[in-house]
Design a protein around this nucleic acid. Sequence first.
DNA 1: CTCACATGTGTAACCGATTACATGTCAATA
DNA 2: TATTGACATGTAATCGGTTACACATGTGAG
Lengths: 324, 324
Amino acid sequence: MSTIKDVAKEAGVSVATVSRFLNKSGYVSENSAKNVLDAIKKLDYQPNSVARALFHKTSKMIGLIVPDITNPFFPELARAVEDVSMIYGYKVLLGNSDGDPEKEQNYLDLFDQKYVDGIIMTSRSSKTDLTLNTDTPIVVLDRANISGLPTVTSNNYEGARQAVELLIEKGAMHIAHIRGPREITSANDRYQGFIDEMLKNNMDYVIAESAFNLKSAEEAAHHFFDKHKQIDAIFCSNDTIAVGFLKVALKKGIQIPADLQIIGFDGVAFGEMVYPELTTVAQPIYDMGAMASRLLIKLIEKEEPEQLLYELKNSIIERGTTRK
Amino acid sequence: MSTIKDVAKEAGVSVATVSRFLNKSGYVSENSAKNVLDAIKKLDYQPNSVARALFHKTSKMIGLIVPDITNPFFPELARAVEDVSMIYGYKVLLGNSDGDPEKEQNYLDLFDQKYVDGIIMTSRSSKTDLTLNTDTPIVVLDRANISGLPTVTSNNYEGARQAVELLIEKGAMHIAHIRGPREITSANDRYQGFIDEMLKNNMDYVIAESAFNLKSAEEAAHHFFDKHKQIDAIFCSNDTIAVGFLKVALKKGIQIPADLQIIGFDGVAFGEMVYPELTTVAQPIYDMGAMASRLLIKLIEKEEPEQLLYELKNSIIERGTTRK
DNA sequence: CTCACATGTGTAACCGATTACATGTCAATA
DNA sequence: TATTGACATGTAATCGGTTACACATGTGAG
């Protein structure tokens, strides 16, 4: 690897001139410019971004913290973040936190040491759990409960409401909701949206609970179907739960969607892999990631963003687990 | 953010002493050590890793290039890489290449500029497509065709063979293989394993082809089922294709596994989400990622690794798309 | 009583960039 | 002719660490 000194020597100028050439700052004569350019090509020189980072206290990197990249919601988010960051010249440092505030703090510290320019995190921690370095802008994604920080979410409440509307419109009489964990804001919002819309329609409902993973969902489903024979529609707090219920229902020989309609939440890719395909309230996952990146980059570049809270709209995708 | 100078001043010693203390190198008196430690705590000092990186030409980061983190195979790999890297104190810089050699090259260059200590890449490019910086160790994952580089794969040929064995054992008489793209080594190996085992058993076979995505698989499946009525078992080149065929078969009212058995390859999470659950040749995805990290870290730390090619074993997971 | 060596510490060079500042040339202007 | 400002370039300080080296001091061996 050649350095700016090598280039300077090769071009017969000082390092300052090379630097000015590279950054198009200050004056460089045409002649020098040519020599420097030739030298750069000859030596295959690439400026060292660590040295730059040290001087500028800036790394052109953004840190991304997700609970678990293995959870199908996050790869798409991560992809979006990377895609738009890339456009603006930022690279992505990835961290999995498992939702553990300690791991989150580790990454936060680490990111600061590396002079990342900004951080995007999906977290259920509250502001008080974390020591935030106030010079580094942070955008919070999906779970909107680190109060005061710029946030990108979707309207979970409204999405849940619409899910219920759809089920009713499709003739459902006895609707159940499988809610997600109580620590997760979005699960609570979806729950509330469900409740409110049911009450508005004067309908009775059944609530069950499951974690956001397949195993937990299947267990819940087994219990559920043993107990509640009359239910003809289920709104699940996310697609994983929905798929778990779908599987168990199929196994029990329940006709989907004739006897039982199911609607999930998230709009994650595997909703299309199951049969019947899963009807769901789709979050604009990619857009949320892209939005978060753009917001963060505005913050980094000290532009005034229009808003600090972006709540994107969900849209219902009707597929095979609800009636035509 | 406080610097080593602040700490030195606070502790009443020179920066060299602080540095020696931090790195446990050279001599530091007990008294100085105590003062330094107090100062560090008081100032909440964290050494700046950019400055360190500049001096050491080392960043404690490893670069990970995957084609597309959105492809369900890679999150688990990425997770494994991050988990073991973390243990050894390395962080992960992520890049999606979309299999494009130009993007791969971009990340490679970028990683060098950032002084990453090593690189893990999943790539179908050949060594000649890429300009590799020879000081930075690289481990290639999954697709073993950048010849000469240390590699971690699974035995695709053998896995395919076993898949055929299983189908025959389960009474399949007319077996088809849906092969993956010809540019992908692992798809070719699986194809070859299929062919060889079929010939060995003196059986006729049908070959069809599909890209590794759901849409392409479903299209292929529609064509396939229209044309080949007598087929009673299908070995698919990966789980995505298998799920696509499963869906279309179910839609056509084909009984699975009674009339048609299906086996996939990869062992990706959504194989358990469909019903019937997908029988598959499971790659030890997490282990492969972990192995690649450990191998890379050995290379980084100039330890002599035992081997340069690790070929892990696949294992068949019998689930619902093959007979009991 | 020296000498050798372990212990302890500070000064300054260095990693590879950026940039403030000084210096110098040259043409246009007063 | 003296002054000014645009153009051009180099020197050296700086970012925040690490470490070679020089220079103490103290202790035990010969």
